[in-house]
Design a protein around this nucleic acid. Structure first.
Lengths: 166, 166, 166, 166
DNA sequence: CATGAATGAGCATTCATTCAT
DNA sequence: CATGAATGAATGCTCATTCAT
């Protein structure tokens, strides 16, 4: 399938990749170079005033747009996830990506604490909730399920953070 | 692969299932006969006092134990999800299962409204958040990721519901 | 294919026929009970006046009409012919049928000699020519090739017989 | 079956032929490259004196010798004919071959008309008769049926053409 | 007579891989 | 770098046959 799309012979692919597994691994790496927390959430210019906005916008950025590039990225992620469930060797890079997002949320939420917007307790758990939900939301978006993605994401953020502000 | 596992010839399998697709569909049906909201959440005896408890326990019930039976259930679900992403014929049963859980959460939360434990607004969105999160939590459990499943689930419920009670 | 059409199980067919080959043989016999020279050519009432007419009509009778029954008969003949080319065991019954038609033509032509319509020389060869041509004509009809079947057949008879009459 | 005969794996065959159908088509093309009217009937040097001789010899050339090469040619033709009866995609090349022989006979007979050896009427029908008979004769030769092939063919030509000369 | 269940052999096809060039 | 040619293993499926019931 790949050799046809690329217009190269199967044999030639074996010059560049020793095995199918290596091809998969390196494809994953290549495609997910840009898939990390800081690519979606603007950590540099976050401040007390745009904190919630940053959180909201970052999540929405993560949801695959209909732009082909973004969708295929998510497509690869999803295929890779399936492989990981069958074959241990693919689990590690996936966990690394997930860990990055988890760390990202923790980092961002701790800024929220700095800004006095969130109570310092439970940041870890809150981060996991946010990470798990946005992950599943993008899975749904990928499957083209109709959903009020923005509203759901905003509501969760509201519940997890904003209520505390008052 | 299957014929080897069950110690039967491929041909014999084709005596019982006309096509690969039929095999998949019927396996899905068989395995998910018992996978529906009411099987995990005790809707009959829920009342004002045990409402939160019912929610918490139901979610924890959904998380796969390490018991092989439960794990294989999730394994099939995950393979089926992959197929659904590629082939429409497998999408329908999946959506039906997901809809059942969503409806279940809505039903349960509306009981919470009856009990005066939840504000009537936003029940739909809250249900989706709960459904999406418990779904992703069981995916994680399946992949044997280490996580404080109970704490995360309780915290989400606390955020979505209990805060309102006061 | 057969068991589905008949509405019986494959196993049941094996009660009636020991092997596939026997099924084929007996099907051939059953279907070609009525496929013999005298069934198409009216040998009983042939006389000097209707001799040519009998020859022409008989040949046209042999050409498969669009009537399903007749066509399926020819269909079986054709499949059987193919088998005969691969497998010797099917050759004998076929040759018997062909021999019957050849004998029929010889018999009919010798009546023509009796009637003084044909010169006695070469009856054998003439019979073979007629038999070979009508055989190939019905093959063509079966394949639904467009052809002036009647004209071709009449012309051949004219060439083989009538010219001699003058 | 084929891969065993040629001592190659099935997979290797699929390297050279994309599908079974392509294999069949290309085999047919390869084998029947040389099977056309002009390959058997010497159209270039035909003249008034050798006209009948050319017709006779051409037909005899078409009859498969016992030489394996020629027999396999007819074997392929027959299998292909069977396929054509079931599947339209194989009908076209067959009809093309048959049309070529028909056209050939028409062309040759019209030379006969030029030479003043045949009456101009009915050339089309005569050509079909000749084509149909020589076709069936080679079928019979293929099946190793004992027959006076030469005598039959000469007699038909005599009937179709020579009688007119006087 | 008839069926259900199973099986071995085969077929059309794909895929990961190898290897000589 | 790239290709052509080949291969073993697998997959989805059909078919002729068997055998116990």
């Amino acid at each position: 399938m790949i050799s046809k799309k690329v217009g190269i012979t199967k044999s030639s692919i074996y010059y560049h990749f020793a095995t199918k597994e290596e091809l998969i691994h390196r494809t994953f790496e290549y495609i997910f170079k840009g898939h990390y927390f800081a690519a979606y959430f603007d950590m540099d210019s976050v401040n007390k005033d745009n904190f919630v906005e940053t959180l909201v916008r970052g999540g929405l950025n993560m949801l695959p747009s209909d732009d082909e590039d973004h969708r295929s990225k998510l497509r690869v992620l999803s295929e890779f996830t399936m492989l990981a469930e069958r074959d241990d060797q693919f689990r590690a890079p996936l966990l690394k990506v997930q860990q990055d997002f988890l760390d990202g949320f923790i980092h961002l939420l701790s800024k929220g604490v700095e800004f006095g917007l969130i109570a310092p307790s439970n940041i870890e758990v809150s981060s996991k909730i946010l990470a798990l939900l946005i992950d599943n939301l993008s899975r749904c978006k990928m499957m083209k399920m109709e959903m009020e993605y923005r509203i759901i994401w905003e509501e969760l953020i509201d519940r997890m953070i904003c209520r505390e502000i008052q």
